[in-house]
Design a protein around this nucleic acid. Sequence first.
DNA 1: ATGCCACTTCGACATTTCACGAAGATCCAT
DNA 2: ATGGATCTTCGTGAAATGTCGAAGTGGCAT
Lengths: 236, 236
Amino acid sequence: MKSGVRHQLAEKMAGEITLSDSPGQALKKWRQSFNIPQGLLAERLEVSPSVISDYESGRRKSPGTAIVGKIVDTILSIDEDNGGRFINKFAKILYSEFDEDVIYDIHEYASPVSLSDFAAAIDAVTLCGPTDQAIYGYTVINSLNAILQLSSSEFNRIYGWSTERALIFTEVSTGKSPMVAIRVTPFKPRCVVLQGISQEQVHPLIPGLAERDRISVLCTEMDVEKIISSLRGKSW
Amino acid sequence: MKSGVRHQLAEKMAGEITLSDSPGQALKKWRQSFNIPQGLLAERLEVSPSVISDYESGRRKSPGTAIVGKIVDTILSIDEDNGGRFINKFAKILYSEFDEDVIYDIHEYASPVSLSDFAAAIDAVTLCGPTDQAIYGYTVINSLNAILQLSSSEFNRIYGWSTERALIFTEVSTGKSPMVAIRVTPFKPRCVVLQGISQEQVHPLIPGLAERDRISVLCTEMDVEKIISSLRGKSW
DNA sequence: ATGCCACTTCGACATTTCACGAAGATCCAT
DNA sequence: ATGGATCTTCGTGAAATGTCGAAGTGGCAT
């Protein structure tokens, strides 16, 4: 679990750099806050050190998304190779306690993903609802802990940046409680995935509940770790 | 309070676009999720509509930070002109309840800001500690609510992305409780600003407490709204 | 069908980026 | 003060960006 931090951190860095009116300085700030010398960064990027300096000094006023991305990624990789000291430091800032127990993974896609592709990737069967729709992200939720720990106002957090997403509830027994929770909640996902049960074990009330909010319901028995690794780093 | 959302949202958008391996698609996704036609976006950017299309279609594979920033900003501005419907929708996702009552403003600078410049901007006097240091951000905190509402694990949130920052506690009576809170907490800011009291009213214990953690302490009587507007949108 | 609106495609051209390597500037430590 | 490590500056050339405008596609209302 939890390499979500890397991604979120990367996004934060890239966002800050891109919006800065001197991207070079922002770049420098991040390199320095990871305690990485220009030389090492250059080496890992397989460019000469002057390139880094040119960026940081602002000779290139508007670096392209490609290099910004590469630099951010390289900074993070270098830290990972050193045990991820700084990433972990920032992780504390990003994640509050409960996120780890409740949200196993949360991710946004930059472009729409069709529900049928999504279902295929996690080996899921469609219980009800259309599959010709598209989603923009997913959240993997520990069903039990979500109900135990999340207050109603915190429940929204599971939606990330878009409600056009799939909510994957793990280790459900019949799937009833997750569907009820969604029923009484203002935001609705496009799709709910019930993990850990077979088609037959699903509670008979579910199709009815789902239809009211026009939600597609899938179920899969693939295990959680595998789902997460299959979903991450998909290019579709 | 609270235009912090715009900035955070902008950063999120920019980050996602920059890291995407097809920035064009990401750009498109955001434009569409704000329900803005290409033509309008082009008009506001004062470029021809084909420019937008070229980006979104990916003819330019790695757009520079400058246009990405401009586009993101323009999308947000258009929404603001329409009453900020979508921004508000995203704001719900960004901010959990308590943030509004506790954190009045939180901001990161892309480049270091000297403490003396910072002090000048908020009309603050230095009580103790050096002023030749630099900070990377600030947080404006409602002292009373912070103590009432924040659990110890949530207290870290006030640090944002860097502890190299100023914590501005508002409406303090003597400044003692904020300093005690920091004393018993693992993270330390570079600087604490006590808002709402004069130099004479400051509790005599404070210099001692501050020195232990090598924190500079300032105090100011400028009012909170004014502090926030003075600090935001500074280029230094 | 006629037309409008939203969007795409493409050639052209000025401007920038991107990357290099050589040479210079700083700042420790020895 | 001699070295070493880190960073800066700059000229250069190939490649890509940034922008335009004209022409083309594809709905969906009239």
